[in-house]
Design a protein around this nucleic acid. Sequence first.
DNA 1: TGATTAGGAATGAATATTCATTCCGATATA
DNA 2: TATATCGGAATGAATATTCATTCCTAATCA
Lengths: 191, 191
Amino acid sequence: MTETKKSKRQDILDAAIVLFAERGYNGTTVPMIADAAKVGAGTIYRYFDHKESLVNVLFQEKLNALFEQLLKDYPTESSIREQFHHIFESIHHFAMEDTHALHFIDSHCNEIFLTKESQELFDSFIEYISNVVRVGQERGEIIVLQTEALIGVVYGAIVQILKMVRAGTIDGSSPLMDNLEDCCWNAIKAN
Amino acid sequence: MTETKKSKRQDILDAAIVLFAERGYNGTTVPMIADAAKVGAGTIYRYFDHKESLVNVLFQEKLNALFEQLLKDYPTESSIREQFHHIFESIHHFAMEDTHALHFIDSHCNEIFLTKESQELFDSFIEYISNVVRVGQERGEIIVLQTEALIGVVYGAIVQILKMVRAGTIDGSSPLMDNLEDCCWNAIKAN
DNA sequence: TGATTAGGAATGAATATTCATTCCGATATA
DNA sequence: TATATCGGAATGAATATTCATTCCTAATCA
């Protein structure tokens, strides 16, 4: 059945992301993934050439999903503040839907086993947000400081918040998260 | 000579932190460390019981150094804004003096091979900063939101900024860093 | 002083273990 | 039945750890 085929592949990916997020790529063995996916070790190699291709496929799939979430209903014509709201909400929504994905992406985005393609995809994601910041600076809505540095502040803050939500340290629901969005915006808004 | 003894141990630690910061604990082999330290593989086991004790010693030593930097000349009596300045500056200074340490700490602080002691040391560091935030909230200098969440925003932002300084994406010198400190403060200051 | 020796430090080849990958018999599908 | 898929034991490479040996230093002796 082609359904089994699809589902096995997905089982492998689903099991792998949990392990990669929790133990890191190098701390995760192929048999561990096989066990968690309830699949023979050999089956993994029916769907992926190497462990490295598995992690790269996973990285790109998750990043594409995040990107998709970001682009969905993107308010191109709105104020930068509203665009910022959309970005924050998209990432938040993504992290809530897929508990491990954001942490997986963030903790693997600089690893040496990522292919050029994976790296470029990540760069293009950051670049997309950078452009928003740049426009915000031109329009006087965002302070004029090196764009990369502002991205760092906001990206670092958002990712850390969502890691803490994942860890159960803080609650990821509305009132608090709305306030935290304001905090992040306050960090970069023009005076 | 006892100096050799001390120096070998230090050579090993110095080599290890660079590799751990760049490749992660599991991506770093003991022979890699030995080569980088210009030491025989066996020598590492004269100074450390296992690879795991090596990483724990390193983690605790670096965290203690960071803590020491934080406590040095801590302005207990000053306003929370000034205390915040001291904290930001301490971490910044620490990251500039020891290029790999902060990244090493941050990228390993949740790993499963850390001993209870290592984890508790990290927790006590976060707890120290939490207390400052709490006092700031009581005094009306910092917005009243779940303390952990605010720590997340500020910690995430600072660490990400300093990772980017390390990567060469942004410049870690005064004018920009002072502005970024303001950004971080603006995220949590009371309106 | 110069030679001898003991004791600890250092080494890296050898060992034991772990891991990614392969292979083949068993199972399911058409 | 023929074909595709699967599982998991088998394989060999990579890795952490050990250990027999060498090297160095400093104390002792002639």
